[in-house]
Amino acid sequence: MSRQGSRDTAPEIAVRRLLHASGLRYRVHVPVPGVPRRTIDIVFGKAKIAVFVDGCFWHGCPLHATQPKANAEWWRAKLDKNMTRDRDTTEHLRSAGWTVLRFWEHEPPEEVARRIAATLASARRPLGEA
């Protein structure tokens, strides 16, 4: 498990490259405000948009999550704790006024980048403008 990458994963880098190529600037691996030992994958600080690109195994994707057979009880508890932590982080950020976007690693990077850009554009639009 110690060799398992937790940041700069291939899906995350693909999304970041597309965002950067489209002219969007962001910060990466920013600590969650007010919560120790948690980070946000991609942050648009002024717009208060937090983006997470979650791995299917580690975060319990409903389509692709698998259940290890060896030491199954330990793994179930570990993965459940990950999902609880994800929900807690999302709720914490939303209560602080952030927009939270979560994507699965299997989602096409082009679609993820398009949805992020659209959310950012609507966040930057002045009130009353359509």
Score class of each variant (00 low, 15 high):
85 R>S: 13
59 H>Q: 07
70 A>M: 14
25 R>V: 05
67 Q>D: 03
70 A>W: 06
70 A>Y: 09
72 A>Y: 11
40 I>C: 01
29 H>W: 10
76 R>D: 12
84 T>I: 15
126 P>I: 07
118 A>K: 14
24 L>Q: 14
107 E>Q: 12
35 V>M: 03
89 T>M: 15
74 W>T: 12
107 E>K: 13
61 C>Y: 04
39 T>A: 11
49 I>F: 04
45 G>Y: 01
47 A>W: 00
117 A>R: 13
92 H>Q: 03
119 T>R: 15
16 R>T: 12
94 R>V: 15
115 R>Y: 06
24 L>P: 15
39 T>V: 05
21 A>I: 06
48 K>V: 09
93 L>F: 08
35 V>Y: 00
14 A>N: 10
122 S>E: 12
38 R>M: 07
125 R>I: 00
126 P>G: 11
31 P>F: 05
14 A>Y: 02
27 R>N: 03
48 K>P: 00
18 L>P: 04
83 M>N: 07
94 R>P: 12
37 R>L: 05
34 G>F: 01
11 P>Q: 00
43 V>P: 05
116 I>S: 03
118 A>D: 02
104 W>E: 03
64 H>W: 12
68 P>H: 05
121 A>Y: 05
23 G>C: 13
34 G>R: 03
108 P>Q: 09
114 R>Y: 12
130 A>L: 12
18 L>C: 14
82 N>H: 10
10 A>S: 03
57 F>L: 07
93 L>Q: 09
78 K>A: 02
15 V>H: 15
53 V>K: 05
124 R>P: 14
18 L>Y: 01
122 S>N: 09
25 R>G: 07
54 D>Y: 04
62 P>Y: 11
91 E>T: 14
89 T>L: 09
24 L>S: 13
103 F>Y: 10
112 V>R: 14
79 L>K: 07
91 E>Q: 14
51 V>A: 06
110 E>F: 13
49 I>Q: 04
23 G>W: 01
108 P>D: 04
110 E>A: 14
54 D>H: 03
94 R>Q: 10
12 E>T: 00
65 A>L: 05
10 A>L: 06
35 V>G: 09
127 L>N: 11
64 H>N: 04
123 A>S: 08
112 V>E: 14
3 R>I: 02
1 M>W: 01
85 R>Q: 14
5 G>Y: 00
1 M>D: 03
31 P>R: 09
130 A>Y: 02
62 P>R: 06
79 L>N: 11
26 Y>N: 10
76 R>P: 06
33 P>F: 11
21 A>N: 12
71 N>E: 02
90 T>W: 03
42 I>V: 13
17 R>C: 04
13 I>Y: 08
52 F>W: 09
106 H>F: 08
111 E>P: 03
13 I>F: 06
37 R>F: 10
65 A>T: 00
58 W>I: 00
56 C>T: 00
34 G>K: 02
